[in-house]
Design a protein around this nucleic acid. Structure first.
Lengths: 353, 353
DNA sequence: CTGAAAGCGCTTACAG
DNA sequence: CTGAAAGCGCTTACAG
């Protein structure tokens, strides 16, 4: 005869591998239910929406949870609800200081509101960016795109799936956070005018940059107001190196003051001009944009139009969170102020001699 | 008579809220199974471990998946397996440039190996750091701690739960990635000796900093070798401001060359010394540590001992991923080389006069 | 206020 | 090679 089958004793299925590599696996609401002597669904209620459970039961459950060192399993929670308490932030370049404060601002408000921040980088590529965004969409409740490189339609398409907030760019129908350049620029231009400058050059950023266009607009308007002549110069790339390369065009332009698309360009430009023997600001004034980390390391320290990047990050996160919780208008644009930070690289023009 | 109950027609439960805010919810493996005419479990196999399914079925399933624009639900996947394809990185300060390249290095290798990076910041607080770490542990497969502030035991405790890799510090029993300071320091000290310096000062970092201690050790050893006198000075904080504040001690020390715990200190020190009329490097040589972003913005640009921070981030991520996939030794320490980056802030001492 | 049950979308032993 | 079933740990309508 063959051995009798005894299904009752059949090997129980091996439990899924637990996180803990030693000893106790994480406690579940079932463990709590057992200890507290209630149904698991009651535990779930007590833990998610206090108030629906009697004070007594609530306490029982909380004590049991504490005793067992209970931690919810976010995946188990996400599965039925679809909510993850996580949002994504995609930046063009993690090592570009422009994004540091944005990241910090977003991270801080995320943590404050009990959300987790997931970070990805597009390496300045629209394709990489879109791929990263699509990928993230699966695991986050919402997405922040800082200075996105992809086109408006792609952004709107993403925004149909889940809340998306854009920083440093305006996209129709999508909530955005953008620094309003006008105040900072007019302060800068007025300061230059007061110091005797009559012709200013603007060194532009990448052609596709939405922000570069806004800044050039602002410079033109402010110059018109102050009766200064404004000329626009192109850069090869928005970096220190690009700043060096544009130096000869700047000299050729005859301008005695320069505003650049960003601080990196300003720093490179200043280095190159100084290497050629020019004295800043006696012979030429230089004004950057953003007030990045390191802008005051130069000699003279850089005058710049500061964008409140940290505020942008925090504002975007707040907007997103509000959207997720049903508050806030769908597609409001949040404008944050810019301001002139007057340092040593701009000032009075000395008479030639 | 009461109405007869017709359980078959009982209202079906409302489906959980879907991600998509408009139209089609995401396709599931059940949808694919239907289209491909196979069992969902077969779909799962085809999608996770190709090779266990006949080529024909495989193709059928892949086509269906493509057609339905299928995306796995990471939460559903994580629940039975416990694996999330995510790892965490905790840094002390998101706006400290030392971490930029670490973050980038980690992010790049994560993405390359199909992992997602979750970022958190401890704001230089050991408590916040531990909280963030515990919190992350629930959702990641492993954790990277960059320059952690918590104590060794807490780190080891975390490491018992899931793989943990530490950067910029050595913790017994935990895999670490640390820059080996000796090469860079001895290059720096030899260069100073060759330029006629005989007494060098080291401006230390925070007392609890493991790395500061290593650097001071290295400076002492290298000075002994080159027969230079080495003195140690304390700083109040490892920032530009801290560098300014230590300037008077530096002058009082009589040293003609200074190595500082980090570049920020070096930059602040240089600014203050120059403001007092000293010429760098003619009257004093300054050497920083790390080669952070902006170290070359100064005039003269900063000589510094570069730590390959990007490599640290990437190395830590690789170590972690290997650990997660069962390769690699449990607690190996990965050492990366440092090197001197010779720029203008160090050089020959000019005879006084 | 609380219990019992179904379901979220996967994975994976177990049979065949 | 493939199907049928159980289970991962939660949440939430449905009853009472």
């Amino acid at each position: 005869m063959t051995e009798p089958k005894t299904p009752e004793v059949a090997a129980t299925r091996a439990p899924a591998k637990k996180h803990a590599r030693d000893g106790k696996p994480n406690a579940t609401i079932y463990d709590i239910a057992k200890v507290a002597g209630v149904n698991p669904s009651t535990v779930s209620r007590a833990l998610t929406k206090p108030g629906r459970v009697s004070a007594k039961t609530q306490k029982l459950i909380e004590d049991a949870a504490a005793e067992l060192n209970y931690q919810v399993n976010p995946f188990a929670r996400a599965l039925p609800t679809g909510r993850t308490n996580t949002f994504g932030l995609i930046v063009a370049d993690i090592t570009n200081p422009t994004f540091f404060d944005i990241i910090r601002g977003a991270e801080t408000t995320a943590t404050l509101r009990d959300y987790t921040l997931v970070l990805a980088e597009s390496a300045e590529s629209a394709v990489t960016e879109l791929t990263a965004a699509r990928r993230m969409m699966a695991t986050v409740d919402g997405l922040i795109l800082a200075s996105p490189r992809m086109n408006d339609d792609d952004i709107r398409r993403l925004a149909r799936d889940k809340p998306v907030v854009v920083i440093n760019r305006e996209v129709d129908g999508v909530p955005c956070v953008v620094p309003d350049v006008n105040k900072g620029i007019s302060e800068a231009v007025r300061s230059l005018a007061a110091n005797g400058h009559t012709k200013v050059a603007f060194v532009a950023g990448p052609p596709q940059s939405w922000m570069s266009a806004r800044r050039w607009d602002g410079v033109q308007a402010a110059c018109e107001w102050s009766r200064l002549e404004a000329v626009r110069l192109e850069s090869t790339k928005p970096t220190v190196d690009g700043g060096r390369q544009v130096a000869r065009d700047v000299r050729a332009s005859g301008a005695t003051a320069v505003l650049t698309y960003n601080d990196l360009l300003a720093i490179g430009l200043m280095q190159e001009l100084q290497a050629a023997g020019m004295v800043v600001p006696d012979q030429i004034s230089i004004v950057g944009f953003d007030d990045i980390f390191g802008a005051d390391f130069t000699t003279p320290p850089l005058t710049t139009v500061r964008s409140p990047l940290g505020k942008c990050g925090a504002g975007a996160a707040t907007l997103l969170l509000d959207l997720l919780h049903g508050a806030g208008e769908p597609a409001a644009t949040l404008r944050v102020e810019t301001e002139l930070v007057l340092r040593g690289s701009s000032g009075r023009l000395l008479p030639a001699g």
